[in-house]
Amino acid sequence: MNDTKIFTYARTAMKNLFHKPATTSYPFEPAQFPERMRGHIEIDTAECISCGLCMRSCPTGAIRVDRAAGTWTINRFDCVQCGSCANLCPKKCLHMTPGYTQPAPQKSEETFELPKKAQPAGASQKPAMDPEKCVYCTLCAKKCPQGAIEVDRAEKTWKLDASKCVGCTLCASSCPKKAIEMK
């Protein structure tokens, strides 16, 4: 066994005594957040087309989109800041912003009213299929968040329910043959 040595840690201890603290004096000194920090979700309501992809992709079910009522609701206490909704949003109206949300004595939801303007930009555009290019692979129907497209491979039919379509363009971007155009 080694000889007993005393005060081997004394230098570090002394340094710590006369050194600036390693921690900051929060809340007197505001916290500094890096640019990429996934603090909380923010929505740009003007751009939202209520497609509901965020609601479906949320692993904890913290988001609720009510298309009829025109609201977008988030339970910030259920949100785990994974960024899944912001990654998938076709209109990129969801952003992960640095900074934490306020604590509260009980869990509550935050509801955003989506502006009831005539139609959000792009929503007036509906997909149109080019029968010469389409191979009826059904990918557009699978990707559609509203289930507005119906494709029958055997019958070679492609139907769009315009009342359900929100103009998210996901069908056009997922089409392997580029047969769908937004018009």
Partner: peptide, 25 residues
Amino acid sequence: MESWKLREKILDMFDATTGGRVIFS
């Protein structure tokens, strides 16, 4: 405390590069 003080530097790097301190996603 010395060990965990050093660990903070790595956590800060995680925060700056991924956006999360512990769970990066």
